[in-house]
Amino acid sequence: MTHPFKTLHHVCIVVRDLDRAVRYYESLGVGPWFDYPKSGAYLEFEVPNREASEAMRYKCVDLDNVQIQLCEPSPLDSPQRRFLDAHGEGVYHLGFEVPDRDQAEADARALGLGVTARGKRADGSGFAYFDTRSQAGVVLEIRKTA
């Protein structure tokens, strides 16, 4: 078994107003920001609400040691929208880079973690979110970058 939660890739923060948040970070010298690269079609794409997922807006910045992702959920029902409505702005998930998406998902499932959303592309890249909020304080995600 590998350890899927070893290499932190990003911290995702849910915000009410993406443009306002980016402007604030830029005023602190944090940037440049770029749109989340939603590259390639998924062979497998299992999310609670596809329309809400596609309507979310993201901006990212690569720091020296980690990426920050800002997420503005749409008004449509999604885990991110429910988090924002219940808790306000804040860290929604931690994303960990893995060498093998399928193996990391299997290893996390073997640890007893339930999958809440997942996606996989033909090149093996993709993601899986796990139901860890009540135990870890945040959602944990694994991802394989193309």
Score class of each variant (00 low, 15 high):
Y129S: 02
Y25T: 00
D35L: 14
A106Q: 06
L70F: 10
L18N: 06
Q67H: 09
E105N: 00
N65L: 14
E72M: 13
D85S: 12
K144Q: 15
V139E: 02
E89Q: 09
P79I: 01
Y58R: 15
D107Y: 02
K144D: 12
A52W: 09
Y129L: 09
D62L: 13
F127N: 03
E89T: 01
R121P: 13
N65R: 11
V139T: 10
E44C: 14
Y58V: 08
V22P: 02
H87L: 07
R109S: 01
P99W: 03
I142M: 05
E105R: 08
A21E: 13
F45N: 10
A136I: 02
A104K: 02
C12V: 04
Q103H: 06
A21K: 12
V91Q: 05
A128T: 01
C60P: 04
K38P: 14
S134K: 10
H93T: 02
V115I: 11
E89N: 11
A122H: 10
G124S: 03
R133Y: 11
S53C: 11
V15F: 00
D131Y: 05
Q67N: 13
I68D: 13
E89Y: 11
D102Q: 06
I68Q: 14
G119E: 01
D17F: 03
N49Y: 13
R16V: 00
L63Y: 07
V91G: 07
